[in-house]
């Protein structure tokens, strides 16, 4: 999952970014002013925006409004030092999905962030299932027919992303953009190896799910006819 943090307090942004990387292995980009943040958010590669309200350049509320006007549906979590009721109502009405007041609890921020990403993908349950394959996004574990599948962090993240969009074709570029931060192009060659490893491990479960490579278009996670 790729996350954008727009926060002018550099130390705070770093802490939040590190927490998401450490806990979920997320790819995190940071922007320290409103204009830079908005231009990054516009690219649409993010699965979650974490936005401070008082920003130089453009304030958080106007960024939310602009993104929503453009039809961008990326989940937005607001960090604010103000907790007046009317203010919160304005934020949510403008299109923000959730908010936390500073000083917040880092664990809560991580959980809310995760929940927003899940909801953003149209999933309510923390356990994603496809056929006999189930993925627990909290424990970050994968089970194939109640048998634990041992995956590396990157393999897990690839599978998690694909499980949010089962049976859909996900391009290599999209996968890269959502799994890595702005330096994703450097990982372009590595991802094929990761996908290949993942495919092997899934095959070992007894073909409960398979990652197809569709030439020139990308990857697709599907359930073989036999096991359906």
């Amino acid at each position: 999952m790729r996350i954008l943090i727009i926060e002018d307090e550099v130390r705070l942004a770093e802490n939040v970014a590190t927490a998401f990387r450490d806990r979920y292995g997320s790819a995190v980009d940071c922007a320290h002013d409103g204009l830079e943040g908005f231009s990054l958010a516009e690219s649409g590669h993010y699965d979650l925006l974490i936005l401070d309200l008082m920003l130089p350049g453009a304030d958080g509320l106007s960024i939310v409004t602009k993104l929503r006007t453009r039809g961008d549906a990326t989940p937005i979590l607001i960090l604010t030092a103000r907790d007046e009721r009317a203010h919160v109502i304005d934020l949510l009405n403008a299109g923000a999905d959730d908010y936390l007041t500073k000083p917040f609890d880092l664990g809560e921020l991580l959980a809310r962030g995760k929940a927003l990403i899940r909801r953003g993908k149209g999933v309510a349950n923390t356990v994603l299932t496809l056929g006999q394959l189930s993925l627990n996004s909290v424990e970050q574990t994968v089970h194939g027919d109640s048998q634990l599948v041992d995956l590396s962090p990157t393999e897990y993240r690839i599978l998690e992303y694909l499980m949010f969009r089962p049976r859909a074709i996900v391009s290599k570029r999209e996968l890269l953009e959502h799994l890595y931060d702005y330096r994703w192009e450097h990982h372009s060659n590595v991802i094929e190896a990761h996908v290949s490893n993942l495919r092997k491990k899934l095959r070992a479960t007894g073909e409960l799910a398979l990652v197809e490579t569709i030439r020139g278009r990308g990857y697709r996670l599907s359930v073989p006819e036999a096991s359906q």
């Binding site: 307090e9 130390r11 802490n15 927490a19 030092a81 500073k102 000083p103 880092l106």
Partner: peptide, 13 residues
């Protein structure tokens, strides 16, 4: 609050 948020998040991290 922002200053405290920095401290708190650093400690929790």
């Amino acid at each position: 609050k922002t200053s405290i948020a920095v401290l708190k998040s650093s400690l929790q991290l």
